[in-house]
Amino acid sequence: MTDKDPRTSGAGTRHRPVAADARPGSRANTRASSWASGWARAWGAVVNALAAFGTALIAGLMLLICADIVARNGMGASLPLVSELGALLLVMIVCLQFGATIRADRLARAGLFLDPLRQRRPRISAALEAVFSLVGAVMIGLMAWATFGVLTTDWERREFIGTPGLGTLPTWPFRLFILLGLTVAAVEFAVRSVRSLRSAAGFSEVTR
């Protein structure tokens, strides 16, 4: 998931890491870091699992729409719910893959100021990165918090898509996944912030 093949890069500016992984430390340091890296791996697995689910949903979305085309042009009747379901699925897909996209540093940003700064004053640039990631964690965290409100009202009011009498689906399961995706994304920002902060404090090298 952290694959950064620049040949098919996205909308964002790309950057390569300035240095490799954290430098080797003392024995105690190593034990502590292996404990930490265990957690880091586990967290990475969570982020990747959500993204994989989102990825599968893109394929599902494609098949759903193709099935609708076939049904409409072949049998003269559209499948129920497709457009409303497709719209809600899309929101879900974006939120599920949000964490992995942050992790791969694929959000659009300008490197004009930051890239040269990282070369000259790596620790200052890391401090700046920590602030950016913190703002990200706060904003996406607030969005997740607001989504929790949306989820509970959708649950209480039995919100649904579709038309009564012709087919309906409750919206709360979708909201639940949206909430899950946003929460993971917020935590991923927080993790990045801590990592940058450590680099800024000189505990590890600036890797971005």
Binding site: G10, A11, I58, Q97, T101, R106
Partner: peptide, 18 residues
């Protein structure tokens, strides 16, 4: 195929999040 699907997802998020 998997790499390509992952790539699709990340480009999608970077565009739609904007």
């Amino acid at each position: 195929l998997w790499k390509l699907m992952v790539e699709t997802g990340q480009i999608t998020v970077s565009v739609l999040f904007l």
